[in-house]
Design a protein around this nucleic acid. Structure first.
Length: 328
DNA sequence: TCCTCGGAATGTCCTACTAG
DNA sequence: CTAGTAGGACATTCCGAGGA
């Protein structure tokens, strides 16, 4: 238990060098970003963090704890393997991530026909960032973002995950504009944070964190459990309380009259991204915290089916067009 | 006021296509 | 032939528009 807590709090991390570079981080006591009690858990959470808002990530992990783990604890690889990917998909609502989580568990357990993933090897202090990164990248379901995220969780702060939040941050604070897409912003970020090597990730995360606190305050009460809520649904209810729907619509209409149609404006992406990220920022803020619950919000499969059906028809139409062109 | 619907977004995998 | 790139699919959430 002590080992797990020490890992979560990164007790042994020496921050002197980073704090010398960023004195404000020292003043704020920033640097020991939270992580899970074991690497396996961090990797699963990294998978559930992909393509998903924070609340969704939390909900998926909560279901894994509730439905697979013993007495609500995070499931072990063996406990995952006791289920099937289909079961995980259906009961934990992790979608296509089920296969990735299952295969990761197989690798950790060294199942027949699967290359064994030695977590101790990955965590060994002598491991370089390059070693860890290439190993992680070879795992099914781990692309650039996930591998970099896992690397920073391993303490390789010279490795940091660029994502849409980086784009939002650079547009807000570092002069990127709507014409700067992800690849350009990634280059800008790499250059910008190279001044903080080998603590690029901490410098980046510190900037983000300061921004979040400016916007949303620094009190810890947002994590507190309210008396009328079950613990599982309250801990990560980080959303800003919404106005009633009608009120929202009225204010939207009022805004509409002052700023013409957002869709029309969004041709250069600036506005649409801005509005989108208002809801994204609080989600991403907490990406590296441990799992707990979030309010459930059941999706409507029929709706998704309909959406996909429509998109598919559109694609088929496009496909037909392409085929017709080919034939021509 | 409630409900339904469509559109957009997220990171990774995979396949088809293109350039060298 | 190989390496690189583009784009679709995946599951889910959120938001706005519009109809009942």
């Amino acid at each position: 238990v002590m080992g797990g807590v020490a890992r979560m709090l990164r007790v042994s991390l020496d921050l002197q060098e980073f704090h010398a570079m960023v004195p404000e981080a020292k003043e704020r006591g920033f640097g020991r970003t939270f992580r899970s009690p074991c690497l396996w858990e961090d990797l699963v959470k990294t998978i559930t963090n992909c393509n998903m808002k924070w609340s969704g990530t939390v909900t998926m992990n909560l279901r894994l704890c509730d439905k697979v783990g013993k007495e609500g604890s995070f499931p072990t690889p063996k406990e995952i393997l006791a289920k099937s990917p289909e079961w995980l998909k259906e009961n934990c609502r992790v979608g296509y991530r089920a296969e990735r989580i299952y295969r990761l568990a197989q690798a950790v357990e060294g199942m027949d026909g699967v290359e064994r993933l030695d977590l101790e090897w990955l965590e060994h202090p002598s491991r370089t960032q390059a070693d860890a990164f290439s190993k992680l990248l070879s795992l099914y379901g781990f692309g650039n973002f996930a591998a970099h995220n896992a690397c920073q969780l391993l303490g390789h702060f010279d490795s940091f995950p660029f994502d849409s939040e980086t784009v939002r941050h650079f547009r807000e604070k570092h002069g990127a504009n709507g014409s700067h897409k992800f690849p350009q912003v990634a280059k800008m970020a790499e250059k910008h944070y190279s001044a903080f090597a080998p603590y690029q990730f901490l410098a980046y995360w510190f900037e983000l964190w300061v921004g979040y606190e400016e916007r949303r305050g620094s009190t810890s009460t947002r994590w507190a459990v309210r008396g009328d809520q079950k613990e599982s649904t309250a801990l990560f209810d980080v959303s800003t309380p919404k106005a009633p729907r009608a009120k929202r619509r009225r204010s939207a209409q009022a805004n509409k009259s002052s700023s013409s149609s957002r869709r029309d404006d969004s041709k250069d992406d600036d506005d649409s991204d801005e509005s989108r990220n208002v809801s994204r920022d609080s989600e991403s803020t907490d990406s590296f915290l441990a799992t707990s619950g979030a309010a459930h919000n059941n999706a409507t499969p029929t709706k998704n089916t309909r959406c996909r059906g429509k998109k598919r028809r559109a694609r088929e139409f496009k496909g037909d067009e392409r085929d017709a062109n080919k034939r021509r």
